[in-house]
Nucleic acid binder design. Structure first.
Lengths: 363, 363
DNA sequence: TTGTACGCGTTATCAA
DNA sequence: TTGATAACGCGTACAA
């Protein structure tokens, strides 16, 4: 029984010490490499004598052997790696989702490959190809804008995929891929109900970028619920992106529209609200006192902005968790029926909403 | 010239279509597989005739061939993958760092493996081992608490590593690994200077969790700068973790300490400040008016909390970018001298600091 | 129950 | 400049 080879003292710092391979373990344990493989692989352990399994495990442990995921992957065409694409890590709704996903996957022995698409379909396609190259076992797309070929690309590459937060437009091959999203129509409806209950009648909508499912659903939900109350939108305006700056610009435009007085604005996303606050401050208007504002997402810390934001709380980590669970299930059984999960959001009332003033602050 | 094999119509949805291999390209182009490899690899392209290179490229393109990173990795022992470990993705200072890292690495053709350690050294070690299994070419550690064996583990595994945001304690093999950190002592000094200039003399410090370099450096810097002003700390208290809840608890304890009146508190981190605000609100104290508060990091949106937080702005993305650059350089040349980069932070004055009241609000 | 033989897709080395 | 061959480390039919 020889000890593991001592590290070469002449080795350059950073030079890899030669790692033990399955052959080393086999030699050391006096069995064949295949037996080592069987003994250490939980799925095939039953094929081997208890005594041999124990001896092999002991040797492997002593040599510090870990099966090379790369070599195994070449053989099995599985990398025990999952990729996740997000449009923009800076947007605070994604870190909680990513956190939930990574935690669940790590517990199942998967590593998580992350990439930013920056909302660029070309970049998205490139990253998906690159991940295919790395043989990812599955892909989670938090970035798929409607109309991009991300889903069909995954299908062509044979990579199981699940959508998070955004979904495909109705009918557009919607049944081909599972999605875990928020019930956006219902959510924005809660905001409308709240504003109407406060007495608002002239309500505007500051929407998300066109072509993104969260934006279209929230817009749709806004119109529908307003109609149920017998009201018409006072004004509608999409932002260019889900960013603070785009929110500021859109709110500025909204305030400048002639003849469109409104006493409240339902905003498609909390991030945009920060820009809305900026624009209102610049225009000398007070949130709540002059115009009520509602957000969407309840992202971290909006309870501490001033005035604290009334918003729609979504289930960030349930979203990540469920999407990861579905993906794993579909990887295990590709014939499994696709799911379209809608998580139910809730209204969180804070200080950015109040009864309307008599005269609309903005006309 | 045959077309690529059409997709088997009987294939199950999700079943991988057989992907073209280098042998397919070779056959199709009428050359040997090694020639294909040489023609498509930028490093060896020069070894091949221009005409052959073009023909091979055309065929590869037509077949949609991409070299398998897994097979190449098995041969070259390089995966074109970098791992990054963060303590907690929910903490908003990490997403910008991660974003910068991923963007730079993606541009160099690297994929980024992300994992959360949740500040658990055992989990950290496990994740490093797992990444080694996946043959990561390098590791970025944003999570290494002083005293954990993460760095020596990387050295043992032969994986180049770089520290981000946190560094090793002085002297503790500090020269063995590069680090890109913030100049924490200088940063907290800026906060002290500002508070002293406002007239504060009884200043407390609410610190980070013990054993973390950012916490010890900020504490040290706090004491030193205070001493330069001829002052003593009015009170000192570490939080259990860099979380809002831990900040609330620590501030509560600080307020309850007998005979320790203070008019200002320099807090080790913005996240903790949210808890400080919570505790002060619960105690009926006003930020700025009763006790001035300074933060650290200038994380997103603290300009919108109420009152807007005076804090120390660090260079998030320069941190990620530089760390990634250093890692790539050390991977290319392991003998390269290690670097210890300190980024210079700046003071951002907002509304959470004001001149002290005559009588300390908390005594 | 264990050993043998081979292949996964690529690149490095050597020979032509 | 190109081709042939081996090897990277592992998993798995098949044979014993």
């Amino acid at each position: 029984m020889s000890l593991p080879p001592p590290r070469d003292p002449d080795a350059l710092p950073g030079a890899s010490p030669p790692r033990a391979t399955i052959a080393d373990v086999a030699r050391e344990a006096g069995v064949h490499a295949s037996t080592v493989s069987r003994a250490l692989n939980p799925a095939t352990r039953g094929m081997v004598t208890e005594a041999v399994a124990l001896r092999v495990a002991a040797v492997a442990d002593r040599l510090g052997w870990r099966p090379s995921a790369v070599a195994a992957g070449l053989r099995t065409r599985k990398s025990r790696t999952i990729g996740i694409l997000v449009p923009d890590l800076i947007n605070p709704i994604f870190p909680p989702i990513l956190h939930a996903v990574e935690t669940l996957l790590a517990a199942q022995g998967y590593a998580t490959l992350v990439a930013n698409t920056d909302n660029d379909p070309a970049r998205e396609a490139l990253l998906i190809e690159r991940m295919a190259t790395h043989l990812v076992d599955g892909l989670m797309l938090a970035s798929a804008a409607a109309g991009t070929g991300a889903i069909s690309l995954c299908a062509r590459l044979g990579i199981p995929a699940v959508l998070i937060n955004r979904r495909m437009p109705e009918g557009a091959g919607c049944a081909a891929v599972s999605a875990v999203t928020n019930d956006d129509r219902h959510g924005i409806g809660l905001a409308v109900d709240h504003l109407v209950a406060l007495g608002h009648r002239r309500i505007a909508h500051l929407g998300g970028p066109e072509g993104v499912s969260t934006a279209t659903d929230r817009l749709q939900g806004f119109r529908d619920r307003l109609a149920q109350h017998g009201l018409e939108p006072a004004a509608l305006r999409p932002a260019q992106a889900y960013t603070r700056e785009a929110g500021r610009a859109a709110m500025q435009a909204l305030l400048a529209e002639p003849g469109k007085g409104f006493t409240a604005v339902a905003v498609a996303n909390d991030m945009l609200c920060l820009g809305v606050y900026d624009a209102m401050e610049a225009a000398g208007l007070r949130v709540a006192a002059d115009i009520s504002v509602t957000g969407f997402n309840d992202m971290p810390f909006v309870d501490r902005i001033h005035p604290a934001l009334t918003t729609i709380r979504i289930q960030h980590d349930a979203m990540g968790r469920q999407a990861a669970e579905i993906l794993l299930a579909e990887m295990a059984d590709p014939t499994r029926p696709r799911q379209n999960i809608r998580l139910v959001p809730e209204l969180v009332i804070r200080a950015s909403t109040a009864p309307p003033v008599q005269e609309p602050a903005c006309r």
